[in-house]
């Protein structure tokens, strides 16, 4: 039975996902405070935590995450960091899927696929 160190790989992915996302979030935050504006908003608008309309995630298009981050926009860097965080546990399910496939454990292959379906349904269809 072919297999690999699933627990080791999972642990590594989880750890590196958190580190990368934290780095992006920190970098984005520092940029917002030094440049004092991001995504056409001033620092005081971004920091307005009481208004639900000035800035919220529905205004940040996922398609612009990469280009916004590359142009060193703080809001997009933070958003990219948050999405890396969201994808971190998802990639663990992928690793599980590969491991179950290698072990020919088809019952669990199907179950992993159902979990991934739910995740992408939430991400793409409902979104």
């Amino acid at each position: 039975m072919k297999s690999f160190d699933q627990e080791g790989v999972t642990s590594l992915i989880l750890k590196s996902g958190v580190v990368v996302s934290l780095f992006l979030i920190l970098f984005g935050t520092i940029l917002i405070f030094t440049v004092r504006h991001a995504d056409h908003l001033t620092l005081s608008q971004i920091a307005d935590i009481y208004s639900t309309t000035i800035i919220n995630s529905s205004q940040i298009g996922l398609g612009d995450l990469l280009s916004g981050s590359l142009s060193l926009d703080g809001i997009y860097l933070i958003s990219l960091g948050l999405w890396v965080l969201i994808f971190t546990p998802i990639s663990v399910v992928f690793v599980g899927l590969i491991d179950f496939e290698l072990q020919k454990n088809y019952r669990y292959v199907i179950m992993s696929l159902i979990v991934l379906f739910n995740l992408f349904f939430a991400m793409l269809v409902i979104g």
Binding site: T52, L62, A122, I126
Partner: peptide, 15 residues
Amino acid sequence: SIYWHLGYIQPFIAA
């Protein structure tokens, strides 16, 4: 990911 599309995440607070 659903919260994101619904606009429930404020990047400044979430960061």
